[in-house]
């Protein structure tokens, strides 16, 4: 398998298959799972941009998602903005939140980045809980306006519109990630991750690249948050919680840090795996243990993630 097959042909085949899924799968629940998987895939693959490609241990990535969720919810429901514009505004505010969080962490290293970014996510959650007159507090916000295109409601036809909107958002996000990681800027992120001093000696500003990567990783995560709020018509403070964070992190680690497609594949696989396990009696809660074990096994056996295993099995795929 050549790199062209791995990086171009396989993703295009996967996209083609996902495009025809609604023709085969007509039940609303399975389509819902796909939509949720697309959202997680956007979160995980964009998180991987900062964590995997640049080595920034940002544990506040879900904050960007939460900011997107609440921005879209408030814009669409409270301010009466079009849901389409509300989704886009989620990306803008998430990027702004990233800029604010990036400034203090740009010069920090390792565990300090984890602590500061995690504290920031908890701060965001407390802000949402305390400003209940705007955010609905612990109850959250419900009955958020849904997407429409002319007179066509996206809820109709077993969520067909949401399925394709979610897939389109994931596709554009993936193209964006490919463009970023293959650019000289993307290469400089890898340089900063692997040899900070050497990168600085070649004219790369380490702190500037860290700030930029956090902002870039927040944009589509914020769009995904906005889409999530408009799709589920709910905004709840759980999005800032440790459960969502650990699930998204497991997708990045199982999929493989530093690869663009790994976290996307893992997001799709884990969303369906956890839902299947939830349907088995006695496994309702044990599914999280299964994910944890899978994460430990992958990190132990193939630190490069599932796509790393693929490379090992098909050595010619290596560059």
């Amino acid at each position: 398998m050549t790199p062209t097959v791995k990086n171009v042909a396989l993703p295009l085949i996967c996209l083609a298959l996902l495009l025809v899924v609604p023709a085969v799968v007509s039940d609303s629940y399975t389509r819902h799972l796909f939509i949720i998987a697309f959202i997680y895939a956007i979160i995980a693959s964009n998180w991987n941009l900062s964590l995997g490609h640049c080595g920034v241990f940002n544990f506040g990535h879900l904050t960007f998602f939460g900011v997107g969720v609440y921005t879209a919810a408030i814009a669409a429901k409270t301010l009466g903005v079009s849901p389409w514009i509300s989704i886009l505004s989620g990306g803008v505010t998430a990027a702004l939140a990233a800029f604010i969080i990036a400034a203090p962490v740009a010069r920090l290293k390792g565990i300090y980045v984890v602590l500061v970014t995690f504290a920031f996510s908890q701060l965001a959650m407390q802000l949402v809980l305390s400003q209940s007159q705007i955010t609905g507090g612990a109850e959250g916000m419900v009955r958020i306006p849904y997407l429409k295109l002319g007179d066509y409601s996206f809820i109709r036809d077993y969520k067909l519109g949401y399925y394709y909107a979610g897939l389109a958002l994931l596709s554009v996000s993936t193209l964006f990630l490919i463009a970023v990681t293959r650019s000289p800027f993307g290469k400089s992120l890898t340089a900063v991750r692997d040899a900070e001093d050497y990168a600085a000696s070649r004219g790369i500003s380490v702190s500037r690249q860290r700030i930029l990567v956090l902002i870039l990783s927040a944009i589509f995560t914020g769009f995904a948050g906005g889409f999530y709020a408009i799709y589920l018509r709910v905004a709840s403070p759980e999005v800032f919680g440790f459960g969502t964070l650990s699930l998204a992190l497991s997708m990045v680690l199982i999929g493989g840090t530093g690869t663009t497609f790994g976290p996307i594949v893992a997001a799709l696989a884990l969303t369906f795996a956890t839902e299947s396990l939830a349907g088995i009696r006695g496994f309702e809660e044990a599914r999280f243990i299964v994910i944890a074990v899978a994460m430990i096994l992958v990190l132990r056996v193939a630190p490069g993630g599932v796509l790393g295993i693929l490379d090992r099995l098909l050595p010619s795929a290596r560059q």
Binding site: P184, K187, S188, A191, D194, A195, Y198
Partner: peptide
């Protein structure tokens, strides 16, 4: 040995040209 292990020699020199050499 200072290196960017995941980048090729060409990519390493190119990013130096892009950033250091603008």
């Amino acid at each position: 040995d200072a290196e960017f292990p995941e980048l090729s020699a060409l990519e390493t020199v190119q990013i130096s040209a892009a950033y250091n050499g603008r």
